[in-house]
Structure formats: C-alpha cells, structure tokens
Write a protein that binds this DNA or RNA. Structure first.
Length: 430
RNA sequence: GGCGGGGUAGCUCAGUAGGUAGAGCGUCCGGCUGUUAACCGGAAGGUCAUGGGUUCGAAUCCCAUCCCCGCCGCCA
C-alpha cells in the first residue's frame, strides 16, 4: 500500500530533522522564484512545504519541480528540515522528485462561484473544505452505526425499487421496469415496519429519492436517510431514541473531527441536557406571538419554524401535529384524536427539520380507515395492511436526514456540500 | 406549482441620455536564491445565452425562447 512512501505528511514533524523520507501527494500550492522552487504538497493527511534550491539539489530535481503544475501528483524524496519560515515549522529539502501524473492549468484557482465548483465537483472534492466536510460526514455516519449497534438495533436493507407509494404519488421518480411502472423509494419505513416483527429494533442508512422541484438549501432529490423502527415503542420512546442518537453523533464528531470543524471555523458544542419537547400547540403559540398569522390546524411554515428554533440552544422536538398535516400511517392520539402521535426534531440556529417520526397505527381497521380517508387505494397496501393482521404490535420509528444533520453540525449553508456528488432538480452531473 | 434575481474573457465581475467592450485574478513568455493566495515586466484571450425587432448604429431599448440561481410550498 505504501508505494515507496515512508511517511504520510502528518507524520513529518520537526523531530524528524535530518531524516530522509519519501512522501507522495498532489501539488497544493507553488511558488516559482527561478532558482528556488517551493512546492506545497497535499496528501490525505495534510500539507507540507517542499523546497528545491540550486545548490541543495541537482539540476534535474529543480527542473522537475519547475515542471510540476498545481494538482499534479508526485513522489518526492528529501531531507526533513526545521525552518520557522515554512508553514508548520518544517519542510522537505528535495533530493529526488518524480512527477507521476502531470497537471496543467487546473481549473479551480480559488475564486470560483458555487455553480462552477459544482460543475467541477470531481475536482473540487480535493479541496480542503470539502475534505473536511466529508470527513465529518463519514464520522457522523460511522457514529450512527455505532450507536445503533450498541443499542441492539439490527441493520437491514429495504429495496430501492418499489411498486406502491409511500405517502402519496406526486413525489416519486418513475422508472420503466420491463414495461411496468415502478418507483424509486422515498422512505424505507414501510419495509422496516415489516422487519421489526423479526428483529424488534431495526435501522437502515440508505438513499431516499424525492421527485420534488425543491430548490432550497435543505433539499436534495437523492439524500441519505437514516431510518429506524422499533416494536413495543410509543412516541416518547421514539423521542428518547432520537435524542440519544443525535447526541451521540454530535459528541463523536466533535471528539474525532475537531480539526475539521476548526478548519471550517465552526464552533460547535455537542448539545447538553434533555432536548426540549414542545407540542404543536405550544409551537404555534410561540410563532403567533412572534407575528405568525398561522391558525390551528395549519402546518408550521418555514418562517415560523425558524423563529421558534432561534429560541433554542439545542435541537428540540415539536410533537402532536394536527391530524390533517401528516401522512396516513401516523397514530392519532387516543386522548385527543385531532392530533397525531408524531414528532419532528428541529435543529437550533434556524437549521430546520432534521428528523421526522412518530408512532405508527398498528390497528388494522384504523389503518384501513386512514388509507381511505387520504384517498389512497387500499389494494396497493395489502402487504402493509397484512402486518396488522398477524401479531401486530405498537411501534414507532423515525427518519433522520444525514445531509441535514451534517449541515447543522458542520455549520454549512447548503446541504449540497454535505454529500460528495449532490443531486438536485437540475443537477445530475458529475 | 408561486414569487424574485441573473446569463459579458478560463474565473469573479464592471459596463444605460444606444456609438462595433473593460478590470482583477488565471493562462502564456521573460525576470527573480526564502516564497507563504510570492512578486515585477510583457503578451494573448470575448459570435456580450439564443432568435427576431426598433435604429444610421444595440451588451445597452422591445418581443419571444432557452438555461441557471435564490426564496416559498413540499419534506429528511
């Protein structure tokens, strides 16, 4: 694996003074002074200044350094030298330099706009900014797997190609499947509800697709969805799980990726204490006090959500939304049938909804009634209804938006940057 | 689906009483033995999104079309 390398760049420290090492990477910056060449080399661990100077190296090495353009890949042998003038206080005095993959006129120079950078995403990935965000993303996903594993959840997979609709038809991408109309899944929830009768607690982290022309900072047409479902669990159990999971993820990212957060200039403290749990009624009241014209029964709109979220330091739940405002499978509150046993987790700082979930209807007749109430065709939900016919149990679950969570933790403006190759209504390349 | 903004050099943009286009950065050439987004000198580079119209003359005014961006709705 080392390909002749002796060190990663992060391992080149002043203590190695005088040692001969071989490093490999890409040219990050370059300063050409004629008979002195400065190359700043980047690898996956950091950056290192390298010097080729007449008198300190042979002519061949000096010429190779001169030839190496920005982002060309190279392997370099040299002597480690402490020097206060070098970034990080250490540099490499070049002895041999091999340009492995030349690069001429790298398109990204540093002043490009967002559109250009998205068009060149395959090249922009190597930027330190995107590297930092994507390392945070990887850490967040790893932490989710850890938390689920430690808490007895079984990882399952739901199909991407599906036949029946989940919540309503308009937002599904249609696919031609040997002449039959099928769709890309927009949630694994219904399948997880089947898995719980085997495993009780299950989760999956996989993409969901939404065919909505939503052009906002918090929407993608293809996003990674962390979903969990639990048998024998009510709304409060679900909120407990979400709270523990989100806290764990935040803690692990801060613990393991503080350098990256710092690079992004993100001052982020993992949330402390219990997440506040306010009802829709209370949330509506807060919004109305701040000037919202919403009346009871209407879903909270984005401006209201933002106003409310600025009142909180940590993520917080809003639970028990009006019956009309949510999907058919949500369980009505037995004590108050006009609201549902559902809850959203909203991030502070106006960062919007991160999690949506709730208790599901486990009664066959009630579910059938609700499907009809929503004008859906019960024949398309036979297997889903079946789950209520054979040993049904009270159960709850939720879906967490991976990119939204990363955007909140990393403090980035647009969730496009929380995934390597974002998909939006107008972008499918690269 | 609704509302708003925008397409001028490789990039980021400037350019209205209409007179066949500019800057910074980048690129190329030259110089420089300690640079930190190096610096200095020189050069190249544009069917002003597309089509049509008004006009002696259109990047600029009018009409149409295409594309992009942001906000709202929808949601994770």
């Amino acid at each position: 694996m080392k390909f002749g390398k002796t060190h990663y760049i992060s391992e080149i420290t002043p203590e190695l003074q005088g040692r001969e090492v071989v490093v490999a990477g890409w040219v990050y910056r370059k300063r050409d002074l004629g008979s002195v060449q400065f190359l700043v080399l980047r690898d996956s661990t950091g950056i290192l200044q390298m010097v080729a100077k007449e008198g300190e190296c042979n002519e061949e090495t000096l010429q190779a350094a001169k030839r190496a353009g920005i982002e060309s890949s190279l392997r370099a042998k040299g002597i480690v030298r402490q020097d206060p003038r070098a970034p990080g206080g250490v540099e490499l005095v070049l002895k041999e330099l091999e340009v492995v993959g030349p690069s001429e006129d790298f398109p990204i120079k540093g002043k490009e706009g967002p559109e250009f950078l998205l068009d060149h995403r395959h090249l922009y990935l190597r930027s330190r900014r995107l590297q930092a965000i994507l390392k945070i993303r990887a850490e967040a996903i790893k932490a989710m797997h850890e938390w689920f594993y430690k808490n007895g959840f079984i990882e399952t997979e739901a199909p991407t190609i599906i036949e029946q609709v989940v919540e309503g038809g308009a937002t599904l991408f249609e696919l031609n499947y040997f002449g039959k109309k099928v769709y890309l899944t927009q949630s694994s929830q219904l399948y997880l509800e089947a898995f719980i009768t085997a495993f009780e607690k299950v989760y999956t982290i996989q993409p969901s697709f939404r065919a909505e022309k939503s052009r906002t900072w918090r929407h993608l047409t293809e996003f990674w969805h962390a979903e969990a479902e639990m048998a024998w669990a009510d709304l409060n159990d679900m909120m407990d799980v979400v709270e523990a999971l989100v806290k764990y993820v935040a803690e692990k990212v801060v613990e393991r990726r503080s350098e990256e957060l710092e690079y992004l200039k993100r001052r982020f403290e993992p949330p402390d204490g219990r997440f506040p749990r306010i009802s829709y009624d209370e949330a509506l009241e807060m919004a109305q006090r701040k000037g919202s014209k919403l009346s009871w029964g209407e879903d909270l709109d984005t401006p209201s959500e933002r106003m409310i979220s600025l009142e909180f330091e940590t993520p917080f739940f809003v639970h028990r939304y009006p019956r009309q405002s949510r999907a058919f499978y949500h369980m009505p509150d037995p004590k108050r049938p006009e609201v549902l046993l559902c809850a959203d987790l909203l991030a502070p700082e106006g960062k919007g909804e991160i999690v949506g979930g709730g208790q599901r209807i486990h009664d066959y007749n009630l579910l059938l009634e609700r499907i009809k109430e929503f004008g859906l065709d019960p024949s398309r939900y036979t297997w889903y209804l079946d789950l209520r016919k054979y040993g049904t149990v009270p159960h709850s679950g939720f879906g967490l938006g991976v990119e939204r969570t990363v955007a909140w933790i990393a403090g980035i403006r647009h969730i496009k940057d929380a995934i390597g190759f974002p998909r939006t209504p107008t972008r499918t390349i690269p």
